[in-house]
Amino acid sequence: MPSKSVVVGSAVGLHARPAAIIAEKAGELGSDVTINGVDASSSLMIMTLGASHGDTVEVAGDDQAAVDEIAALVERDLDA
């Protein structure tokens, strides 16, 4: 299964707005993606990770393109 380790780029971590942006994108994708094992299409589940800026997380899923897309969002500062 494709997976990718990425560093959280948002200054606030995977919280509130960044989590919502990632979840929205993950919900639009045709295949399931997880971040550290939790459903990436749920902002609430993402927030349970408590991932801070600079933490490394594992993005995984069946589809490489979907994984890449979510991984890229995780790396970006979405709260900027």
């Binding site: 919280h15 707005r17 609430l44 589940m45 927030m47 349970t48 408590g50």
Partner: peptide, 11 residues
């Protein structure tokens, strides 16, 4: 979301 995020982290 901010409130729910606090809950998510507390959980």
């Amino acid at each position: 979301l901010t409130i729910l995020g606090k809950l998510a982290r507390a959980l």
